[in-house]
Amino acid sequence: MKEVIRVSDVVTRFGSNLVHDRVSLSVEEGEIYGLMGGSGSGKSTLLREIIMLMRPESGSIVVLGKELSNITYADAAWLRQQWGVLFQSGALYSSLTVAQNVGMKLREYTDLPDSVIEEIVHMKIRMVGLPEHAAELYPAELSGGMVKRASLARALAMDPRLLFLDEPTSGLDPIGAEAFDQLILKLRNMLGLTVIMVTHDLDSIWTIVDRFAVLGERKVIAEGRLDEVIETPHPIIRKFFWGARGRLRSAHGQ
């Protein structure tokens, strides 16, 4: 399998707060890759570095064959077309309706007629499970879960090759979260996406994630498939998977 993202020896520091100390991981094409770790372990920060919103202090990040630390302007523009991002807080444009938010990239980057764009937008909105009338609402008029969905629809608008999701299922009800997971799985299978998702949701890890990394103590403490990671004797991992919530899940034998 082809490697689409390689992070090697990344060091990140905010003032005196060392967040990453030589973090390395790699994501292969077509997989759903999870990033786990406690609050404040630097998952969002790592994601921001991969999507070029921040530069690490040292180390290298290669995305789709481009080294980010000395990328040319044209390559950067090309890369930004290859991915869709769902931010932790949604980050919808508050002065645009959901439909306008979703259609933004299509309007800007393609030559499609408006009527087709509108159909694509409505299709994506239905695809992420939003009711039809949500299209004309403004972000402030949405519930937390709807914001997540609208934001996913926006990330999917151009059928990106890479999909970055920062805690897509947090704030959703269990049924909604499950459906969201299945949706991501289905999209991956159909569109051949590579999905990188930050998640705390053990259910997502159990059901849809192919491989994942656990961040802790400023490093990657484990990386691999579930059965590989779960055997790691590191105390953080044991807490994660053998704590009450994790045990409950394993007791159901999944």
Binding site: K66, T72, A74, D75, A77, W78, L79, Q81, R107, E108, Y109, T110, D111
Partner: peptide
């Protein structure tokens, strides 16, 4: 949204 659409630049296959 301007008249000229931005060209997909760079190094796509």
């Amino acid at each position: 949204m301007g008249e000229s659409k931005k060209e997909p630049q760079g190094t796509g296959e």
